[in-house]
Write a protein that binds this DNA or RNA. Structure first.
Length: 452
RNA sequence: GACCCGUUCGUCUAGCGGUUAGGACUCCGCCCUUUCACGGCGGCAACACGGGUUCGAGUCCCGUACGGGUCGCCA
């Protein structure tokens, strides 16, 4: 049997991390087994249809690199892939139910007769779950009254306006699209017996189910779109790399069981399987996500790094085509976790004006002999002919020697004078990148600044 | 409330009857170093609780507690 998985979002207007992770697991499973990954849009409820809702979801999936083999914009032999366009198919399946006497009308809606016996879900993650739908559905919890009220256990599958309900279309589409494995959130586990009842009357073998645990906030509450890290487009804007986000999402609820933490997409495809999926919910840890991103950032080849970082440098007013960018990226990536942090680390090299950190200035301004240090530094650097790392370094060394000072004591004033702060990338390469003229001017300006 | 799923360091997890309970993030030391970061080394820190079963239980069974989910003419 060939593996066919699917991700079936409804167009809500954003790609949530939970949905993205579900998509990732389905995608990985399909890729791991050489199967197909199908994207299907669950837009049966017109009231919930958002104009741009789908676009953002597709953009998010594309950014993550979770390309679908069949679905919107791609097509495929089991289309259409919008449920809103599959009415005729649902009508046909409804007719089958009518023939078998499995449905009846109720105030204009159509209900499916739910069997009065135990139904067992065999789940690859949760094990066996047995429920009697008839018993369970005959009472309903009234959240407002906080009490159980009588209810009709039979499932509404079509509304009076002729539109169909999730449980029904979900099953019909999984049959029609020949979905072999359903990997979805655990919130669907309790719904699965309903789906099995439908598969049974259609005489079709149900797919393999794997209900994956949910991702919660660090405090255990349900993640909503307002929570940090909840929306995929925010990762794009905040300078995350798609493979890092995938890596972290994979780790939330799945383990390769061999202590590996950082995975390339290829490695994930190779190692991912349902056996490694956890049963317990996990809590989202933004700190660790940042760390994973930093690790990926440092593994990127120069060209890919440049391509990914370009928008962030542009936003900071630095021309991504600047010949010094390659050097800048190399210096910045060592101390950044996100692309968005990189321009700030090296921007002093690209502008005339710099901002001085008052604390840093105070730290060196009071030093004894700071005036001599700065003027020696300035004189030494003025004497540098070929403005390269070796020459600059030698000049600084020479100046320090002449004053009988250690390099360590010399570098800090130099850094504050030329870069404005006490921290940052390697100073000498930064100075080279900044340019001789600017560096010397800054030292002079700084000397005046602290003298006054 | 009923039903379902779950419970190993603060967090993500390994473990699948006998382990000094391992790794990772975070935090704290030390080393490297011109600062910061990276890297390296080390440290703090966990089997929810109570009963069984067993020579022996984080591992199996039953309760309790706690967490999550479902109970729609939402998906």
């Amino acid at each position: 049997m060939s593996v066919r998985t699917r991700f079936a979002p409804s167009p809500t207007g954003f790609l949530h991390i939970g949905g993205a992770r579900t998509a990732l697991y389905n995608w990985l499973y399909a890729r791991h087994h050489g199967g197909a990954f199908v994207l299907r849009v669950e837009d049966t409820d017109s009231a919930r249809h958002h104009e741009e809702g789908l676009g953002k979801i597709l953009d998010g999936l594309r950014w993550l690199g979770l390309e679908w083999d069949e679905g919107p914009a791609t097509g495929g032999e089991f289309g259409p892939y919008y449920q809103s366009e599959r009415r005729a198919i649902y009508d046909r399946y409804l007719a089958k139910l009518q023939e078998g006497g499995h449905v009846y009308e109720d105030e204009g809606a159509i209900r499916f007769r739910v069997p009065d016996r135990d139904i067992t879900v065999v789940d690859r993650v949760c094990g066996e779950v047995t429920v009697n739908l008839h018993q369970q559905g005959s009472k309903r919890w009234d959240a407002e009254k906080k009490e159980e009220v009588e209810a009709n256990p039979d499932l509404v599958i079509r509304r009076p306006d002729g539109s169909y309900i999730f449980h029904f279309v979900n099953v019909v589409d999984d049959i029609e699209m020949q979905i072999s494995h359903v990997i979805r959130g655990e919130d669907h586990l309790s719904n699965t017996p309903k789906h099995l009842a439908l598969f049974e009357v259609f005489g079709v073998e149900a797919p393999v189910y794997a209900h994956i645990p949910l991702n919660l906030n660090k405090d255990g509450s349900k993640m909503s779109k307002r929570d940090q890290g909840a929306l995929i487009h925010e990762y794009v804007e905040n300078g995350f790399l798609p493979e890092a986000v995938n890596n972290y999402m994979a780790l939330l609820g799945w383990s390769s069981k061999d202590d590996q933490e950082i995975f390339s997409m290829t490695e994930l495809i190779e190692k991912f399987d349902i056996d490694g999926i956890n049963r317990a919910n996990s809590k989202f840890d933004y700190e660790k996500c940042l760390w994973v991103n930093g690790e990926h950032l440092r593994q990127l080849g120069p060209d890919v790094l440049a391509k990914n970082a370009a928008p962030f440098f542009e936003k900071a007013g630095i021309d991504p085509g600047d010949p010094r960018l390659g050097t800048a990226l190399g210096l910045a990536r060592e101390r950044a976790q996100r692309l968005s942090e990189m321009p700030d680390l090296v921007k002093t090299a690209f502008f005339d004006e710099i901002e001085y950190d008052p604390e840093a200035v105070a730290k060196v301004a009071g030093r004894e002999g700071i005036g001599e240090v700065l003027s020696a530094l300035k004189a030494a650097l003025e004497g540098v002919g070929d403005w390269c790392e070796d020459a600059v370094k030698t000049a600084i060394h020479q100046a320090a020697d002449d004053l009988g000072q250690k390099m360590g004591a010399f570098m800090l004033p130099c850094r504050v004078a030329t870069m404005g702060g006490t921290t940052g990338p390697d100073l000498v390469p930064m100075m080279v990148m900044t340019g001789k003229e600017r560096v010397i001017k800054r030292i002079g300006d700084f000397a005046e600044k602290i003298a006054s």
